[in-house]
């Protein structure tokens, strides 16, 4: 007995059952899979892909969200490449990624490596590192903003003054502000990266370590010859994820720079903040869309590069 299909007339049912009869099991399985995938695919096409393509279209318009849309071709892109601010912002964005990613990966690896070796308090410490990752970025950024204040209230400067070190301007300095904002972003991401590293280290078969100890390998050798090579997929995953994260940095800058403007003098402004300002402060939707397209292309190229590297490296 074939199961009845409700809601179909008899002839429909016959046609469908005849169609199904002709399929192999493999084809039927594929059909079922596609049926189940249909909903997420539709969701992605409507919610994700359609707006993405719309952004390409909007980037060719002059439009303030309210008035008429005016087609201006590639003028937004031309303006963008002539905009000094854009290049500064692009450099800032890459600074966040190129400096933030290695530092955070190094710190989280060191912490995970040593955390793996202790059993006493292991879980408590791991939880402590993970808590910042769970905290709202905005709340955290505001606390850090206060920590960076000058002496009567800012703890960092108070600590510096104990050692007789001169006051640092931190967020108010053109040279230090970007790194001052990067620090809480790195700190907040550590928890996640440590957990992933720990999982990676724990997944290395115990027999590798036993064999190496029989061969008389030292700590450094174990690290270099066993742990690091085995962690390659983990490291590459983290590189991709945190690069994208840093290239899209926003909350910290929005909360920590004066007037949320990415200052002083745009020295901390990342691309996402520039997009936000163009779209929702100045209502230049076309220009904002053009910036978004640029960000999209950057993320695409970097992700593809990293993925191809990953394939080559983990083979």
């Amino acid at each position: 007995m074939r199961p009845g299909i409700p809601g179909c007339s008899l002839s429909d049912k016959k046609m469908l059952s005849r169609f199904l009869e002709r399929q192999t099991i493999g084809q039927k399985q594929a059909l079922t899979a596609w049926l189940f995938l249909l909903i997420p695919i539709l969701f992605y096409v409507i919610i994700r892909f359609y707006p993405t393509f719309e952004a390409f279209f909007v980037s060719t318009l002059k439009w303030n969200l309210l008035g008429k849309q005016k087609f201006i071709g590639f003028k937004n892109y031309i303006k963008l490449f002539e905009d000094e601010e854009f290049w500064l912002v692009l450099i800032n964005t890459f600074k966040y990624a190129l400096i933030g990613v290695p530092i955070s990966l190094l710190f989280s690896f060191l912490i995970a490596y040593y955390l793996n070796e202790i059993t006493f308090g292991h879980e408590t410490i791991r939880a402590l590192y993970f808590i910042p990752f769970l905290t709202t970025a905005v709340a955290m950024a505001w606390v850090w903003r206060w920590l960076y204040q000058p002496v009567p209230i800012g703890y960092f400067n108070i600590i510096l003054s104990w050692f007789g070190i001169a006051q640092q301007p931190f967020l108010k300095s053109l040279d230090q502000a970007l790194y001052s904002i990067m620090a809480p972003a790195v700190w907040a991401g550590l928890g996640f990266q440590i957990i992933i590293y720990l999982a990676g280290i724990r997944a290395i078969p115990q027999s590798h370590f036993e064999a190496s100890s029989i061969d008389g390998a030292g700590r450094i050798q174990v690290l270099r010859e066993i742990i690091l090579p085995a962690l390659r997929p983990t490291i590459l995953f983290l590189v991709v994820i945190s690069t994208i994260g840093f290239l899209r940095i926003f909350d910290q800058v929005y909360s920590m720079s004066a007037d949320s403007a990415g200052g002083p003098l745009n020295s901390t402004k990342p691309l996402v903040l520039m997009i936000y300002e163009a779209a929702f402060d100045e209502f230049k939707m076309g220009y904002a869309a053009a910036l978004t397209v640029v960000l999209f292309l950057i993320l695409l190229v970097i992700s593809l590069l990293q993925l191809s590297l990953m394939r080559r490296w983990t083979r």
Binding site: S173, L174, D259, A261, G263, L265, E282
Partner: peptide, 20 residues
């Protein structure tokens, strides 16, 4: 015309003189 970018002029000019 638009308050925010016009205010930014003063903020930036101040920073240029004091920080730069």
């Amino acid at each position: 015309i638009a308050e925010k970018p016009q205010r930014q002029s003063f903020i930036d000019a101040y920073d240029m003189v004091v920080l730069k």
